[in-house]
Write a protein that binds this DNA or RNA. Sequence first.
DNA 1: TTGTAAGCGTTATCAA
DNA 2: TTGATAACGCTTACAA
Lengths: 343, 343
Amino acid sequence: MKDYNEVTIYDIAEKLNLATSTISRALKDHHTISKKTIAKVKKTAQEMGYRPNNLAASLRSKKSKAIGVLLPTITQPFLSSLISGIEIAARKAGYSVIIMQSHDKHKDEVDLTKLLYDHRVSGVICSLAMETEDAAHFQLFKESAIPLVFVDRVPKGFNTYRVVIDNYIAGYKATKHLIAQGCKHIAHLTIGSEFGTIYHERKRGYLDALKEHNLEVDDKYVIRVKEITYDEGARAVKKLLSLKNKPDGIFAPGDILGVSAIQTAKKMGVKVPEELAVIGFNDDPISRIIDPNLSTITHPAEKMGQAAAEIILNSLKSKTKDDIREIAFLNTEVIERESSKRN
Amino acid sequence: MKDYNEVTIYDIAEKLNLATSTISRALKDHHTISKKTIAKVKKTAQEMGYRPNNLAASLRSKKSKAIGVLLPTITQPFLSSLISGIEIAARKAGYSVIIMQSHDKHKDEVDLTKLLYDHRVSGVICSLAMETEDAAHFQLFKESAIPLVFVDRVPKGFNTYRVVIDNYIAGYKATKHLIAQGCKHIAHLTIGSEFGTIYHERKRGYLDALKEHNLEVDDKYVIRVKEITYDEGARAVKKLLSLKNKPDGIFAPGDILGVSAIQTAKKMGVKVPEELAVIGFNDDPISRIIDPNLSTITHPAEKMGQAAAEIILNSLKSKTKDDIREIAFLNTEVIERESSKRN
DNA sequence: TTGTAAGCGTTATCAA
DNA sequence: TTGATAACGCTTACAA
């Protein structure tokens, strides 16, 4: 250990014959301290090798300069990009990022909210676990006025900040794209409950696009998957392509499902896009590798992360206990690739 | 705020007519406290809704129960899986995980080591930035006896814990696999300096495998890329396939490069694997999506993360200022897929 | 513009 | 087995 030479503001104060409070203020450019003193303090701090002790500051101010991030997992491309965006924005403002994974388990999510609370994080960014059906465990952040931002998988009927895309519009656009390619019988895969809303919203967009164009809305074309995996995707698509009236288009609400639709179709001798047009969701790396390349919907992960972090940072700065809960709607676009190009 | 009802050990002490020190000890099952008292304290703590304040504990003990993780980026599949492994192991032991991205910049890495130090993290897990050529900025962890584990991209000649695969063996195995498929002219892509060692080691394995089998070692078959991107991979492979003596095999030390080798070959009318066998590295998701599927080398990311975290945890527990710097070598395997199957 | 002094909630050192 | 008390390094009223 080299604790013996850990320099504190007390040491600086002694050396400069000033009070610790003056040092503390000078170091943070407090306006009541003269420029001369500030310069002098900073210079000697530098010379003495002073390093602030965030722990002490946090204890005193009851706020650690940290943002807690609670996600189902961090290995999905969308989520790791999200974290990246958060980390960049947080770092710039001098905040650190603590990450926790719920692994889509409700119980873990509940436990981790408590842990984050214990850590006295300044703010929390969360995307809900697939299992979660209520948001009661987030109440403690509200009660403690700790800014809370939900991203992507957001709870229904819980009043907080949220950063999302308009999943309804995105689903609508995706379906409309298939319609524009001449598809008449469009299938859809879906997952999740109404609580996490995003897949439900995408489905709403899908249904409304069909209705708007007077296209058949048929329950047998909407298949529910248990989880977003290649196996589940294959299972669902096999079922669809075994129908006597095969669909001629599929809107998959995730690229893993979209890719497995292409793979399954190829395996079954169904030509993509000629006989089956496919569009996915997210613009994951795999969508550009599959042959034919998968058309998809952009999901601006890094931007959403930055937006979420900035909302927290602003909320912390303005201190106004605003009851206006900001909703950031980020834009999405259709990316047209070979898997849906029929014209 | 509901600070007014924040319960502290002081409140518990008052209620039970005990000293705060007793409460503190009881809560941690200290052996000098009677079982009866421990039970009583825990029960009332529970009842009163007591939540420990890590910040205060950290300040006092000069150690925050946190592990700092410093990586080039978190969006690469290998690295996000690594973090996942770290998070799981750390969480189990009651430690939190703070992540920082160097974005492969040396300067950022230097700054972030200081930040991590300021945070009083209990330990640090790091994978070096591509730019980094010396490890001087990690010295402060050594001096403070903060356990430091390097993973994957480890520094040369800096004595600390490290969790790695044997990149030499892996490169050797990959090349040998191509040789077993009947390849006679095997090319290799490489990157990075000798400091970060991993790519250099893979290349050594490649060269030794060739030599062992009396196969041609030709400089024109070793192409250096500037970064691991599809564009750089395409550029390098285009060059290789334009030689009058085209290679009949490529060992790419990363799946992105391997995938772009396949794509480029296909585009140039070179058949994979018949005319060109390809093997990548990492077993990223894209390797199973590309057609033909990319043979590759496993890189046990999550396990490496867990191993790294556990080394730190053990080091913290045993407190022995051990100078034996553990090296964990994890196993790798060749995964044979279509891109190299010629027999 | 600067100083005084009281905490923040623990842990650790003695002493009992 | 338990208690009293002094830190840990900083922030922040309030005073000067």
